[in-house]
Computed example of a mutant assay.
Amino acid sequence: MASEYTTSEYIKHHLTNASMCSTENGIAFNAQCADAGFWVWHVDTLGWSIALGLLFLALFRSAAKKATTGVPSKWQAFVELVIEFVDDNVKSTFHGKSNLIAPLALTIFVWVLLMNLMDLVPVDWLPSIAGMIGQYGFGMDPHDVYMKAVPTTDLNLTFALALGVFALIIFYSIKIKGVSGFVKELTMQPFGHWAFIPVNFILETVTLLARPLSLALRLFGNLYASELIFILIATLGYFQLPLHFVWSVFHILVLPLQAFIFMMLTIVYLSLASEDH
């Protein structure tokens, strides 16, 4: 596929989301959405993230339904290992009381990990399949068919995940401390004098907003850079195989690490929000 484009066109094509938007003339796609503003749907990001979320639910549900107290199957043993790993991290990090945190941490870890693992799929496979479907199924030019298969390389998705965590931070802060306690936390720390309320409010607000911002940008930055390197390696043609193998082996360690970091930071932030000062 790389031979059909110049290097810059090839990279741009692989880093462009399949977009859908609503215009005065009806539903529009891709380049027609350039002037649509904020309300553009990245259908590939939505499709893959939802599909991988459903895959996570189906796999873990099957393990739960077939669970036995006897000798577990390999899949049951693996699921129990993942759940125990997440549960141990929650117990050692989260100091409040909530039945939501452990399931939330498990969902975040496995879901983000599955989305990250899409980075290991060769970069030409899914775009080529999408191009053939567009060409032979809908009469489209394959060059106008886009498919970005790694949801976590889309800043919209990482920000959506981070904003969900941010909403829980606000919820637990108000639930544990009350509205007045939450306001005091923003205005009377770190300097406990009324004269420093404006300074405290600026510092604490920046700290609060930095949490979802750091969550979103860290995950996006690492995965986007990783995908970009895979795309650059693919432009080498037949010489790409050794480099692709080395970079893939390295990413077998990096991709779970990014999911783990996202999960741990979520637990830490919610633990801080649940502390009653």
Rank of each mutant, 00 (worst) to 15 (best):
M1L: 06
T7S: 01
I11V: 15
S19N: 09
M20K: 11
C21N: 04
A31R: 14
W39I: 12
L46W: 13
L46C: 10
G47P: 11
F56M: 15
L57R: 13
A58M: 11
K66N: 14
T69R: 14
G70E: 07
G70V: 06
S73E: 06
S73V: 04
V79T: 12
I83F: 09
I83G: 00
I83P: 01
F85K: 11
F85W: 13
D87H: 15
D88L: 05
P103D: 09
L120H: 05
V121M: 11
V123W: 03
L126H: 07
S128Q: 10
M140A: 13
D144F: 04
V145K: 02
V145T: 08
M147H: 10
K148V: 07
A149P: 04
A149Y: 09
P151I: 08
T152S: 13
N156S: 15
F159P: 01
F166N: 10
A167D: 09
S173A: 08
I174E: 03
K175G: 02
K177Y: 01
S180A: 10
G181T: 10
V183H: 04
V183N: 08
G192M: 04
W194K: 14
F196N: 06
P198M: 04
N200Y: 05
E204A: 02
L209H: 11
L215M: 12
A216H: 04
I229S: 08
L232T: 06
L232M: 12
T235I: 06
L236I: 07
H244E: 15
H244T: 14
H244C: 01
V246I: 14
W247N: 00
L253I: 10
L257C: 00
V268N: 05
L270E: 01
A273R: 03
